[in-house]
Design a protein around this nucleic acid. Sequence first.
DNA 1: GAATGCCATGCAACTCAATTGCAAAGGTTA
DNA 2: TAACCTTTGCAATTGAGTTGCATGGCATTC
Lengths: 135, 135
Amino acid sequence: MDKTENILVKKRVKPTAVRILVLRYLLDKKKAQSLKDIELGLPNTDRSSIFRSLKTFEENKVVHSIEDGSGMTKYAVCAEGCNCNPEDLHYHFYCTNCSITYCLFDNPIPQIKLPHNFRMQQANMVIKGLCDKCS
Amino acid sequence: MDKTENILVKKRVKPTAVRILVLRYLLDKKKAQSLKDIELGLPNTDRSSIFRSLKTFEENKVVHSIEDGSGMTKYAVCAEGCNCNPEDLHYHFYCTNCSITYCLFDNPIPQIKLPHNFRMQQANMVIKGLCDKCS
DNA sequence: GAATGCCATGCAACTCAATTGCAAAGGTTA
DNA sequence: TAACCTTTGCAATTGAGTTGCATGGCATTC
């Protein structure tokens, strides 16, 4: 059983054909991918099957989703030990030129003082600009 | 000339009928509004006209847009002196129950260490959770 | 091994926000 | 008034996301 299947089994997601392909694709790319990206990368796999795989992954914390303002939700494999809790959060960087979304693991998100009785569940922090290749 | 028109003139946006209505609506509501919100609030005004007004406002820094993950872009009037630069940024709070988006002006966004040669242009920082009324 | 049931898959169709094309209306200038 | 430019309203299109439904595969039970 390879690494990809291992991740799925660990997260209690049945490692079916489509799921393995999708997860492997995400692992290969390293950068956050949109549904369309994956669709183009896996030309023989149906869009809705990919979509449902991603939803399953998200529910089971195999991937987390990022809304980077490109108009398309992107998905990235959760880091080891990630539970998608606020303390696992990190900033994302979206390059407005090449549309690549990077995870900025090095910057912890600071404690944010919320108004009284506001409760944080998750966060989506996206910095837009130009990446090293485009600036 | 009232306050609404004044803002438009200052930002060199011709104060037309639709634009005045839209901006006044945003000023009234105080919270970030989606295109649909505004459409419902101004039932006799055409959606595409509202849309184009918002685009014009954005270009001329009358409003800034927020992608809060609700699937709809929201718009809020820029604060006095706002140039929509990184230093004018603030966090937003999106209530997953009532779908209201709040501007958290009190939390400055910290300096973020970007990878080498990455350049920040803007940012979209959204915290999701429950607001005081819904928690 | 056949029957049953469940889940994943593929395909097509649909929803809905965002956007655009185009013609009419309004306002400005010569 | 005529010519011009911008805004507006309406209709239609785009595109991401999502769902309904029938088929197929796999596992469990008899």
